[in-house]
């Protein structure tokens, strides 16, 4: 407050000094020295200009009505400035009240959050969730097992079919009769699934040896035929061996070839 009032006074002093400087520049320097001369010049100044009259009125007595009006104006300016400073102080105090309001507003938000209770899940509910999860995992495992068992671990009939077809394709007697690229398929049909299905029979004999018998068709550029093959799993060296591999070529000429026939060592 004091510092601000001091600043305001400094501003007023500066204005007075500037007006005094202007007056001195216009008037000769002798006038302020004598006391009688200013009284004479006062009348002239009133007639000449407002600025001069202002300068002299400041120093002269406030008895004249003109001076009283101007003094009242000055007083009003004085009153306005302190009011501005008061408004400034009020504006400074306002944010403090605002912060208090924010603090009070924040509290109601926090308390309900702290007061929300947490209900524990019942044992039965948790158990049912666990059962659902286990059931889902079980279904996924069954599907995965089915896929792997049927495809990744190749079925026996397709394994035997592959071995027999490779043997037939590499045999010179067959290629000489029906041509070189020999194709093998399971059925004479246009249906893809039916053609891919190999007729097969799997059984175990009295000695515990596993036998797989497959029949499939072969076709080449110059003819076609049918293959009858049986393989058994030798328990001694754990490998598949041919019991017999018979190729019956039906076109161009009907010929029957026996490429493999098992003879025990």
């Amino acid at each position: 407050m004091a510092s601000r009032i001091a600043r305001l006074l400094q501003h007023q002093n500066r204005r007075l000094l500037s007006t005094a400087a202007e007056a001195s520049s216009r008037r000769p320097p002798r006038a302020p020295l004598s006391g009688a001369i200013p009284k004479h010049e006062v009348a002239k100044a009133e007639a000449s200009s407002l600025k001069k009259s202002r300068w002299y009125m400041i120093k002269s007595n406030p008895s004249s009505p003109l001076t009283t009006q101007r003094e009242s104006h000055k007083v009003s300016t004085h009153l306005v400035r302190p009011s501005a400073s008061y408004s400034t102080q009020a504006s400074e105090q306002n944010p403090k009240e605002g912060t208090k309001d924010l603090k009070t507003v924040e509290d109601p938000f926090d308390s309900p959050t702290y007061n929300i209770p947490e209900k524990p899940v019942t044992f039965a509910e948790g158990a049912s969730y666990s059962l659902v999860i286990v059931a889902g995992l079980g279904i996924a495992a069954v599907a995965g097992y089915a896929v792997f068992k049927e495809l990744i671990f190749e079925p026996k009939e397709y394994k035997i079919f592959g071995k027999a077809l490779a043997r037939v394709q590499n045999d010179s007697q067959v290629t000489a009769k029906i041509g070189y690229p020999v194709t093998g398929y399971g059925n004479e049909s246009r249906n893809r699934a039916a053609r891919q299905r190999i007729p097969n029979k799997v059984w175990t004999d009295e000695d515990g040896v596993e036998h797989v018998e497959v029949n499939f068709y072969i076709r080449g550029p110059h003819g076609a035929g049918k293959v009858y093959s049986e393989m058994f799993k030798d328990n001694n060296d754990r490998s598949w061996k041919f019991t017999y591999l018979i190729v019956e070529i039906v076109s161009p000429h009907r010929v029957q070839l026996m490429l493999e026939s098992y003879v025990p060592a």
Partner: peptide
């Protein structure tokens, strides 16, 4: 696949 492999089995479809 049938032409390349010269055999028909489920692997062709896959």
């Amino acid at each position: 696949m049938v032409f390349m492999r010269q055999k028909e089995d489920p692997w062709n479809s896959i």
